[in-house]
Write a protein that binds this DNA or RNA. Structure first.
Lengths: 320, 320
DNA sequence: AAGGCTTAAGTTACCCGTAACGTAAAATGG
DNA sequence: CCATTTTACGTTACGGGTAACTTAAGCCTT
């Protein structure tokens, strides 16, 4: 009992006792059971549940890295959940992870099942919704406005004279960030007198190879496409390679635009037209907002982390 | 009390009671506190601590994905630890995560601090050491023999006639997998009458851009290098781009070999000489071994997941 | 030297779910 | 119809750490 005092260093014991206790601790290899502390309700746990769609997407891997590193500096741990973009998996994961009394949750995306929303509200713990900026979040939110980023890309491409544009992405839940980007993109393109002639939504992962064969499908379905906007950079690289393999010159024969600005872009000889999002910073900010809330500091409810359009050289230089 | 029975469905209650209990559960939004169950010692937790060096490296992100998905199918959760390749961070993380009474641990690498080893032994829970195959593991191990994979690459490159070879990697703890690969590589090269003329170990992350400028450094220090072996594919891509930028033809002027076979390789017009490791499968296997041990099934102590040399076309075709 | 004060250490109760046991009522059986 | 079994539900105790309280010992003051 006195041992508990010694280990927490709260005082009320003599130096002799402290030494005796520490000797026993060393000798027995004693590790405190933090479960008991949390269970007793004396303090909250140092778990933060973090749900991420998948790690095959480098972007989310970096967000998670940012989160976990920042949490680590505060002595907190991430409990991971890969929810594969589905609300159902997210709901199940939330139920499970809440039963472990986490100190808070960080969730990717703004759309949750009704039951999930209920549980989150009842849990009474901080929740940060990331990725998709949510102006009326459950609690806190950090991310970017995907609609706007798609819109900006659409405006940029049409400003270069592109009118007949294609889209290659993947389909998962309809209400996700990529769909918002596509919506913003279409709005800008159509507003400028262009047309998104074909939208291809593959039932596959949003990675390199689907980008490759998706481009093939798109171009065989609509030969007169002048430019393709991809769901992300990985798919755009796949498209770029398809063009190279088929002898299509980029940007002379066709324009290519991605989204997300993968690290590999930094060493490519040709800069991919894309949209940069500070992934690592996004993750760190999410963790900081969480920690701020847990330490009762004033925390902004909503943080727009911002994006930056990268003109690149895989689209033509200026209007025709 | 009867409620506990109803929720666990263990029987011994009437249908009327069941309905009444479930109504209350729905109404109150009751979620069981699994902490209490574990704490009472009636069952073990469903946490598995997973330590990974970093997620900037796509390879480890995929390993983690494999682990977490597989654990998820068994109703287990990963508690993440990014240990940045250092034993000290690993030890601290182990101490913390053990205090949460995890059901088991999955650790990257075979080298742990003495205290960490003590804690792991005393914890009395399953431990899987991944990545670096460990023939005498603490408990279980799954991975590949990195020395052998480096050796194979060295033998392959010398078989093509390369004699003056360079290496570009990063330095972290000396005793890690990349170092083992380099050791195997050097042994093979020297055994075949070649020489690893310069080994560059950058104090940076093992990613694209360090591969780019590392190549510059290496080539300016040793101009007569015929071929470069990189710590991983990301660095090799950086090297490839450096060569392209400087007008060095690959493989005519210089050979380039990476390691790890990144997904992006699948769409490159030129196949990077590399070594394929089934990352996702490695992670899944680690999770399966863990679950097997937890359900008292017989589990192999050591699983060699295997690698496959990819000849690629960034080195010359055959001996000079 | 008696009374008050400080410090060190021990005791009790609680957190929540469940194993183990207890009990009352209903069902079964001879 | 009473004895026995079964069913349904209640009670108690426990796990490990700690807040709150109690006790014992040491110290000082007048």
């Amino acid at each position: 009992m006195t041992a508990s005092r010694v280990l927490r260093g709260e005082g009320g014991y003599s130096e002799d006792t402290r030494i005796k206790v520490m000797q026993q601790v060393d000798q027995l290899g004693y590790l405190p059971n933090r479960l008991a502390t949390v269970f007793a309700g004396d303090q909250s746990s140092t778990f933060i549940g973090v749900s991420i769609p998948d790690l095959g997407n480098e972007v989310f891997a970096q967000v998670l890295e940012g989160i976990d590193r920042k949490l680590g500096t505060f002595g907190y741990q991430s409990v991971l959940g890969l929810t594969q973009h589905t609300q159902e998996e997210e709901e199940n994961w939330i139920r499970t992870v809440l039963s472990w009394q986490p100190a808070g949750l960080i969730l990717t995306g703004r759309y949750h099942s009704p039951r999930a929303t209920d549980m989150l509200r009842n849990a009474g713990i901080p929740v940060v919704e990331i990725w998709d900026l949510n102006s009326s979040p459950l609690d806190m939110s950090v991310g970017i406005n995907h609609f706007d980023s798609g819109f900006d890309m659409g405006r940029y491409l049409t400003s270069l004279g592109y009118r007949r544009i294609g889209y290659v992405g993947t389909s998962h839940d309809t209400a996700n960030a990529a769909t918002e980007r596509l919506n913003g993109f279409c709005k800008a393109v159509e507003g400028a007198g262009g047309a998104v002639v074909k939208q291809l939504c593959l039932h596959d992962t949003a990675t390199y190879y689907p980008g490759f064969y998706g481009t093939e499908q798109l171009l065989s379905a609509a030969r007169d496409i002048e430019c393709i906007f991809f769901q992300n950079d990985a798919m755009a690289f796949g498209g770029l390679q398809y063009c190279a393999a088929k002898g299509l010159r980029v940007p002379d024969d066709i324009g290519i635009a991605g989204w997300g600005d993968l690290p590999i872009a930094s060493v490519m000889n040709r800069r991919l037209t894309s949209c940069h999002v500070p992934h690592l910073k996004l993750g760190q900010m999410a963790a900081e907002m969480m920690m701020g809330r847990l330490t009762d500091e004033p925390v902004p409810t909503c943080t727009d982390i911002g994006f930056r359009l990268i003109p690149g050289s895989t689209v033509r230089n200026s209007g025709v």
